[in-house]
Computed example of a mutant assay.
Amino acid sequence: MERSTPISRRPKAVALTFDDGPDQIWTPRILDVLADYRIHATFMCVGKAVQRNPQMLRRIKDEGHIIGNHTWDHPNLTQLPLSDVQTQVLRTTEEIDRVAGVKTRLFRPPYGDLNDDIVRKVTSLDHEILLWDIDSWDWKGLTGPQVAKNILGHVRDGSIVLQHCAGPTETVKGTLEALPYIIEVLSESGFTFSTIPQLLHLSAYR
């Protein structure tokens, strides 16, 4: 189910976000595309993936992208005790800090699943919950044209777009194929690309 987060809309601005990385296969290709177009995005990273691919996380940071926290191993948080939710958040934040030297503030729950207790817990840990208002549905294994249609058909001022930069081949291939076309069409329509901190006037790190 698509989730929304209350955001202050910026005219003709859109934020691209990429979940579940980093990896050694798809993340570098997505970074290459973003570099070609001189666009900065926001990467919501999984702690275990950071542990496996530290050099790729450092590349994300070095190329000017924003790093956020997407839990340690991508569980459904609503099925965990709050003590485990805290561990999922803090362990990932600590690993990102160890590898890249930044203490994340942005947090995205896997599947967008939350409840009031989780919101209070995450907020108490000095993290800002980040959801989205456009789901590319790339996780369904869609083709590049299908992913592009899902995004371009719904973009408005201040949209936050959910895509993925790691995962099964059929998932991320559609995103990689769609990304240049999405960037070109939106640019031709007068859109600019923002990181989440730029779009929402938030601090990325503590």
Rank of each mutant, 00 (worst) to 15 (best):
R52D: 08
Q146L: 09
Y205M: 03
G141M: 10
H154N: 14
K173C: 05
P75F: 12
Q163P: 00
A49C: 12
A49D: 02
P28K: 14
R10H: 10
N115P: 04
L125Y: 03
R52W: 06
C45V: 08
P11E: 03
G153Q: 10
D36F: 13
R91I: 10
L57E: 13
H74F: 12
I25E: 14
T87D: 14
V85I: 10
P197C: 02
P197S: 04
R91G: 05
P22Y: 13
L77R: 12
L125A: 04
R3I: 06
T143S: 15
H65V: 04
L77P: 02
T175S: 09
D135G: 01
G167N: 04
P81D: 09
F43M: 01
H65P: 00
P28I: 14
V172D: 00
P22D: 07
K48A: 10
V99L: 12
L142G: 08
I160W: 02
H164D: 00
T17M: 12
Q79N: 13
L179I: 05
I134F: 06
I60Y: 02
T171L: 13
R9M: 06
K61M: 14
R91K: 15
L162Q: 01
V14Q: 13
K48Q: 13
V147S: 02
S194A: 14
G158L: 08
A49T: 03
F107I: 01
